[in-house]
């Protein structure tokens, strides 16, 4: 796989590995005052033990979005899509459906919407960017309408006290994460489709010349993205006790895009790696953890996180800037 990655992606992965190590050390350094070294290390361990379940929804969504971005498209609506997933889950739950049905509904709803975005963009011939920007608002509205219609006596949020509903998102998160990430990496290692997505993003004209069906390729990427995002939504929903479609996963799309770009995927498509996305998500998560230790003001958190994400994306774009400009003038 390494030989098939382009040089910038490989370089990025090395940087990310180093960066993740650095962040771990930083968190450790924050824990050190007032403790012995072994004590701090074991506290770091307890901090990190929650990583899989906290990171799983974002990781799965990021992998899904990576595939979509590879083809040169994007999906801005994923936060709202997750809210729809949550709403469907809430509907199922409030009508007494068994956990499996609730989760299945959530997965299907979220996955279906993402795949629908891809189809709609193709069918209408307008950029995925616009379709999903519209989705950003429309699906949030849809989620709200759904919970109001489908959940009797809904008053802003729904509490799910039963432990059984938190099995996938909390207890099995590690396994979901392992299988899903493993599956994606396996696809990248041995599959043809990921390479074709990259080909689509790299040069649609070349793909057409070689007889590839561009529509099918683009829609397949959205289907793949939808499946992963649906899974992510399911884990997200089942990791928390209350469901609040108005605020659920608000702004999720940006941190996911940031993680994907950070992982070396070119925002314009054609270049990238699932492994890089994995490291990118991890980096953002660790950075956020480090922030918690560095800034104890909760009001500052969103600003600092926003600045961090902007910094990362800005840095990435500046790296391409000179080449981009020269290319433009040619």
């Amino acid at each position: 796989m390494l030989t098939r990655m382009t040089a910038p992606v490989r370089r990025r992965m090395v940087w990310l590995l180093a960066g993740n190590m650095g962040l771990l050390l930083l968190i450790l350094a924050c824990l050190l005052p007032g403790d012995t070294v072994p004590g701090a290390v074991s506290r770091l361990g307890t901090v990190l033990v929650d990583t899989p379940r906290n990171i799983a929804p974002e990781m799965l969504a990021a992998i899904g979005l990576t595939a979509i971005i590879w083809t040169g498209a994007i999906d801005l609506s994923i936060g709202s899509v997750m809210a729809v997933g949550g709403a469907v889950f809430a509907m199922g739950y409030s009508h007494g459906a068994p956990p499996l049905v609730c989760f299945g509904g959530c997965l299907l709803a979220a996955g279906g919407l993402v795949a629908g975005n891809g189809l709609l963009a193709r069918w209408l011939g307008i950029p995925a960017l616009i379709v999903t920007l519209a989705g950003l608002a429309a699906y949030r509205g849809l989620a709200l309408v759904l919970v109001n219609v489908g959940v009797p006596g809904f008053d802003g949020n729904l509490t799910v006290p039963e432990e059984i509903f938190r099995v996938p998102g909390r207890d099995w998160a590690v396994w979901f994460l392992l299988f899903a990430v493993g599956g994606a990496v396996w696809c990248e290692l041995f599959g043809r489709l990921p390479r074709l997505w990259l080909a689509h993003g790299s040069s649609p004209a070349a793909c057409r010349l070689h007889g590839l069906d561009l529509s099918r390729l683009a829609v397949s990427a959205f289907l793949f993205g939808g499946f992963y995002l649906g899974l992510g939504a399911t884990l997200y929903v089942s990791n928390q006790q209350t469901i609040d479609p108005a605020r659920m996963a608000l702004g999720f799309e940006l941190s996911v895009i940031a993680a994907v770009v950070l992982g070396g995927t070119n925002i314009f498509g054609g270049e990238g790696s699932f492994l890089g996305t994995l490291l990118g998500v991890l980096f953002l998560y660790l950075a956020r953890q480090a922030l918690i230790y560095a800034f104890d003001d909760p009001h500052a958190r969103q600003a600092v996180e926003g600045a961090l994400i902007l910094g990362v994306i800005g840095f990435d774009c500046v790296l391409h800037r000179a080449a981009h400009r020269m290319e433009e003038l040619k």
Partner: peptide
């Protein structure tokens, strides 16, 4: 020329054809 710059030469040459596979459907690079 129209080509996918980030893909390898082999992938560009075989784009749109069947790619050789091993057991389990793995692409035989």
């Amino acid at each position: 020329l129209e080509y996918c710059g980030h893909l390898t030469v082999a992938e560009n040459m075989l784009l749109g054809e069947r790619w050789p596979r091993r057991w389990g459907g793995r692409i035989d690079w």
